Computed example of a mutant assay.
Amino acid sequence: MAIDSLITLTGEAWEDYGLVDSGHGRKLERYGRYHFIRPEPQAMWSPAQDNWQADGEFIGASDEDGGGRWHLKPYVPKEGWLLQWEDVCFLAQNTSFRHLAFFPDMAPQWAWMRERVTENAEILNLFGYTGVGSLALAAKGAKVTHVDASKKSVASAKNNAELSGMADKPIRWIVDDAVKFTAREARRNRRYDGILMDPPKFGRGPAHEVWRLEENLSDLISEAVKLLDKKSKFLVLTVYAVRMSALAIGELLSQATQHLGGSVEVGEMAIKEEARGLNLPTAIFARWKNDQ
């Protein structure tokens, strides 16, 4: 399966989220009733307005790899506040990692996967974080295995399930290293109808396993495709904050899934700005699909 084109997957605003404006290395976003400013190196243009009004701003450190802190108005609730996407309710919260405990640009991926999920489909969500993607698929009848190395993230995901009225949905909540878990599932000859993976650039497992995207992604993909067969429907891979090409991860996924048939799409993820309709790039992705 040769990769001969790139696509742009653009997220639109919804009731509880919008990219209001962007420019000069920053972005102004709406999260429910609150507005926040965050650093955004991709926003190299000028903003539509100069006088942004916000309830808080994340001031990044000078180093490229992150750091920094939030400067919030005193009324912004530290415990978070309720947001909703489609039939999924969840808490947004100002985290020390500069994001808001979910990734709004994933909404088009959630919608795409929901179109391919049938009742009782077995779905694996690796690096599942606070569970919005898992709940989006469970709401459509999928049986989801949600894996994350962070106990805190899995606890937040369970809480979001409660908020969504999905505590009784067939979701396995697992605190584990994604690489080790996937390898064990492959040895057990487990099969899934779909896989979502959103790996970080760097991370540690619950037993202090070290994850480095550039070093470990290829092996993880190799193990993950062992959990798919020719009746499986998709594998979605999203990658943030790395010097890596969409074509590179596309060719990696294409090579790994060539025995399954189907096709691979690759490209950039973006969010459409409300002020002018500009597309702000956020991540790269590759996804294998089998529409037969």
Rank of each mutant, 00 (worst) to 15 (best):
Q292E: 11
A101C: 09
G68A: 11
R187K: 15
R204S: 14
A155N: 09
G194H: 05
R204D: 09
K73R: 15
E86I: 12
L196I: 11
G66A: 10
D21W: 08
Q255R: 15
T182D: 07
T282K: 11
E122D: 12
Y34I: 04
D21C: 13
G32M: 02
W45D: 07
A178D: 04
K158I: 11
R38V: 13
D87M: 09
A241I: 03
G56K: 04
T257D: 00
E273Q: 08
R172Y: 05
R114Y: 04
L253V: 00
A167N: 04
M166L: 13
L9T: 08
D87A: 15
P47G: 01
P281W: 03
A167T: 03
H71C: 12
E273I: 07
A142H: 02
L9M: 14
L126K: 06
S156M: 15
D177R: 05
L237I: 03
K158M: 12
K151V: 07
G141P: 00
L253M: 04
M1S: 14
F36Q: 01
P104W: 08
T238I: 06
Q53T: 15
M1N: 13
K226T: 03
L213W: 03
L280G: 00
L228K: 02
K73E: 13
V236W: 01
F36R: 02
T118N: 11
H208R: 14
G250M: 01
E122G: 06
E86F: 10
G250S: 04
D148A: 03
A149D: 02
K201D: 12
V236S: 07
K27T: 14
D63Y: 14
F103E: 07
S232V: 01
G267R: 04
A167E: 06
F285R: 02
E273C: 10
A142R: 01
S232D: 03
